[in-house]
Simulated assay, not measured.
Amino acid sequence: MILARNDEVLVRRHHGELTLVFDDTLYKLNAVGEDVWRMVDGKKTQGDLIQSMCGLYDADKGEIGSDIEGFLSDLIRDGLVFEK
């Protein structure tokens, strides 16, 4: 499935950190989370995102995949990202 951002999420940079605001909740992203958020563009699948992240970071593909899947699951559960 293609992943897209919820247009109702407010995105702010505060003291160098990317912060997402949705439904009265703040989500502070680290550098990896920020990369994932940027790549969720309504054109890529979860597999595409994992492949792109493997190109950016020198880590085990299985570990990257597991981490990205968990992070995306949280974003979907909380309504910041949806599958289309």
Rank of each mutant, 00 (worst) to 15 (best):
D7L: 12
L20V: 02
K84A: 15
Y27H: 09
E8G: 10
E83Q: 10
F71V: 02
I76N: 00
L10S: 12
G79S: 13
A4P: 07
Y57E: 04
K28P: 11
F71H: 09
E83P: 00
R13P: 04
G42Q: 05
S73M: 13
M1F: 08
T45A: 09
E34T: 07
I68K: 02
I68W: 08
D67W: 06
R77N: 08
E17N: 13
H14E: 12
Y57N: 01
I2A: 03
T45P: 04
F22W: 12
D48R: 07
R13D: 15
Q51R: 05
R12G: 01
D24E: 09
I76R: 01
G16T: 00
S66Y: 12
D24I: 07
R13F: 08
G79R: 14
G47E: 10
M53N: 01
W37C: 00
L56A: 10
V21R: 06
D24P: 04
N30V: 03
E17C: 15
A59S: 12
S73W: 15
I76K: 07
G62K: 01
W37M: 12
A4G: 06
G33H: 08
G47C: 02
E8C: 03
D78K: 07
D78E: 02
G33I: 01
L20M: 00
D35W: 04
A4N: 14
V9A: 14
A59H: 08
L29D: 14
I2V: 08
R5V: 03
G16V: 09
G16A: 08
M53P: 00
C54T: 06
C54V: 05
N30R: 10
L10R: 14
D35M: 15
G47N: 12
L26C: 10
Y57H: 06
D78G: 10
I50G: 07
T45C: 06
D58W: 03
L26Q: 09
L75Q: 01
K43E: 08
L18C: 09
V32S: 07
L10Y: 13
